[in-house]
Design a protein around this nucleic acid. Structure first.
Length: 365
DNA sequence: GTTCTAGAAC
DNA sequence: GTTCTAGAAC
């Protein structure tokens, strides 16, 4: 094991690196000759049952998954090679199929066992796969006893950094931190920014034991809030029936925000989710329909809030009720390229500046 | 997600 | 010439 800690230490001395981490990306400034071939294959790392993972379960193939890190895009492509199911956020990949594993999502190597998460190191081209904890009986939802947010035995950053059973080479860790969910440090990639913002008291405009509301850092309208659950839910894909109550609560808190901030006005709002959000961690947009904002700059911004790319909160809740999960239509990303059109009068607009000028007409009404 | 900028569109 | 978009880089 000696070679790996030495390598990791050079990757970033700021992060307490330890056993049970597998390197997946390309490292700047470290010669490949120094690299332990068992844990690193720059482009295609194939792992499964074996010493790297310490998995001995025969259900897991020696070549269970093939991993390819894309550090710029912030995900690791996971291809299931073995016959038994590998899953990402409880969705089976399928033999010879490939899915993206993003930070915050959990990869189960086989049969919903042997969890891993990916972490990127900022400023490097390095991605690490970190071993998680097996599922505990701990409920996913925070305690109902009303004594505030609690961390349960899930694999979030704090857990993964501080709780390795066999950790021997770690520097003093930060395990004595407040009992908050989820603790976020060294998330690295920009797509993890919401997890940092939601923890920042200066960003929070409301919170209770289930969720927090923050102002969007780059609001696309006069009023634009994000409602985020404390529970680490990476995306819509991970939503299940057990989240229904939470989704409804998020919706009603969103409505409360609207009431409280627009008491005397008849400002229109919509509450909903982006079909394929750029940022990790489920977040409900609560946005006024004036779209009067300098941060609204391009077609993608516009279409993400005014086409069916924007999934209404009620529809998402209904979908989870009926189907037990949220499905997003194939090709929904194409909607972001739709021709510009006023969301009020449907009049086509040729450019963003023209659209923004046109929108002024509707403000007075 | 944003920023930057080359080059398309005007 | 300027405006605007879209894709790469972060």
């Amino acid at each position: 094991m000696a070679a790996r800690p030495r390598l990791w230490a050079r990757a970033s001395s700021a992060v307490p690196l330890q056993d049970h981490m597998l390197f997946v990306g390309t490292l700047l400034g470290v010669g490949e000759a120094e690299v332990d071939q068992k844990c690193l294959n720059v482009e295609n790392l194939v792992i499964g049952r074996g010493p790297e993972t310490e998995i001995v379960d025969k259900k897991c193939s020696r070549h269970q998954v093939q991993l390819t890190a894309d550090c710029n895009k912030g995900y690791v492509k996971v291809k299931q090679i073995g016959s038994n199911p590998t899953s990402v956020d409880s969705v089976d990949i399928g033999k010879n199929q490939e899915v993206k594993l993003k930070p915050g999502e959990t990869l189960h190597m086989v049969n919903n066992l042997y969890p891993y998460m990916v972490e990127f190191l900022e400023g490097t081209s390095a991605a690490f796969l970190k071993k998680g904890e097996e599922k505990k009986s701990c409920n996913k939802r925070p305690s109902e006893s009303g004594d505030g947010p609690k961390k349960c035995g899930r694999m979030d950053t704090e857990t993964s950094v501080s709780s390795s059973k066999t950790s021997k080479n770690t520097e003093p860790t930060t395990s004595e931190k407040p009992n908050h969910v989820p603790e976020v440090k060294n998330q690295g990639h920009w797509s993890q920014g919401l997890k940092v913002s939601m923890q920042d008291p200066t960003m929070q405009v409301f919170k209770d034991d289930k969720l927090v509301v923050i102002k969007d850092k780059y609001p696309k309208a006069r009023h634009h809030w994000l409602v985020l659950p404390w529970e680490s839910i990476s995306s819509l894909k991970a939503l299940r029936v057990e989240h229904l109550e939470l989704l409804q609560h998020m919706h009603s808190v969103g409505e409360k925000m609207i009431q409280e901030h627009t008491k005397l006005s008849n400002t229109k709002f919509r509450l909903g989710y982006h079909a394929i959000p750029s940022m990790s961690h489920v977040h409900l947009h609560v946005i006024s329909q004036d779209f009067d904002s300098q941060c609204l700059k391009n077609k993608k911004h516009w279409n993400s809030f005014t086409t069916d790319y924007f999934l209404q909160s009620e529809d998402v809740i209904e979908m989870v009720k009926l189907n037990g999960r949220v499905t997003v239509k194939n090709g929904v990303s194409e909607l972001l390229k739709s021709p510009l059109q006023c969301h009020v009068c449907k009049q086509p607009q040729s450019t963003i500046p023209q659209l923004k000028e046109h929108l002024r007409k509707h403000w007075a009404q």
